[in-house]
């Protein structure tokens, strides 16, 4: 029983980490149909941001609180630059963007290696985050609890933006039917910029969170991007609700299989499960309802 509860918590925690990584990707993928291979490198940029902030601010608690918004900004600005410089020039050529953003990812990784060196660097976590907290009789790393709440916060904030602001209405309109949105006087170009900024910003935020658990290294993004894609395609492209269900579903599935078999096998079986699921339901968990003809 104890083990089941411990794995339940591990699964939920893994789900929240997956969600944070996939949230921004889901947004940009859904809005523009662009597969951004550099999404993982925006996370890497967020992680290195928290290292840089830690160099300037010696107190780890303050460093973390400041890293979160700064990481968001750094990720967002990188995304904006990528969108303006490259992606908007490749509209309707999704395969080209796939390759171009992959190239950008390699460039960013090399940049990180040149600036910070090939060995991982380290930013100290605040004292109140190093150590366990008691949940349901289980001791859970405080960092995992923190990341869980950060993911919830990011989802809530994104939901609020999409549902409650005029900007969110425009984003949703462009997502559902770009031509009609344009005909209604919405600058879809402008909406694209903002969407990409938001999505990449969340990647930066996820990167800051990742430093609490992983190495800050140039290949931080490569490890995360595959899982993030898995969540996005399983959840249904551009669907916040789908991404949330898929992230927690995959997290619990991984934790469950991993406990009863082995880590390597769990990864394989989770992949297999997603592939089989997509055979049955290619549009993902939640399908985008659209009136567009495309």
């Amino acid at each position: 029983m104890d083990a089941a509860i411990a794995q339940l918590i591990a699964g939920v925690s893994l789900g929240s980490i997956l969600l944070l990584a996939a949230l921004g990707l889901s947004l940009t993928f859904g809005q523009m149909g662009v597969i951004n291979n550099a999404h993982g490198e925006f996370m890497m940029a967020g992680a290195y941001t928290s290292y840089c902030v830690a160099q300037v601010i010696p107190d780890p608690t303050w460093a973390l609180w400041i890293s979160l918004p700064v990481g968001f900004l750094v990720g967002g600005l990188l995304g904006l630059v990528l969108e303006v410089a490259l992606i908007q020039r490749m509209r309707l050529r999704p395969l080209d963007t796939l390759l171009a953003t992959f190239g950008v990812a390699l460039v960013l990784q090399q940049l990180a290696k040149d600036i910070f060196g090939p060995q991982p660097v380290y930013a100290q976590a605040p004292g109140w985050l190093s150590g366990p907290v008691e949940i349901l009789g289980q001791s859970v790393p405080a960092t995992r609890v923190f990341i869980f709440f950060l993911a919830i916060f990011a989802v809530a904030a994104l939901y609020a933006v999409l549902r409650l602001t005029p900007l969110g209405r425009q984003i949703r309109a462009a997502m559902q039917n770009r031509d009609l949105a344009e005909a209604s006087g919405i600058s879809t170009r402008g909406v694209d910029h903002v969407t990409f900024f938001l999505g990449s910003g969340i990647a930066g935020l996820a990167g800051v969170a990742a430093t609490l658990m992983d190495a800050i290294s140039f290949n931080l993004g490569t490890g995360k991007i595959v899982d993030a894609f898995l969540v996005v395609v399983a959840g249904g492209v551009g669907q916040l609700k789908g991404a949330i269900i898929a992230a927690f579903g995959l997290g619990l599935l991984q934790a469950g299989i991993e406990y009863s078999t082995s880590t390597s096998l769990a990864k394989v079986l989770v992949f297999l499960a997603v592939v089989v699921f997509l055979q049955v339901r290619p549009q993902g968990l939640v399908a985008l309802r659209t009136r567009s003809l495309a």
């Binding site: 104890d2 658990m213 290949n219 934790a255 880590t263 390597s264």
Partner: peptide, 20 residues
Amino acid sequence: EEYAPLGHTDFATIVNKLKS
């Protein structure tokens, strides 16, 4: 006796097994 794929970064389950 637990193995993680090269580059694996989520050790919650392995550490849970370790603890118990």
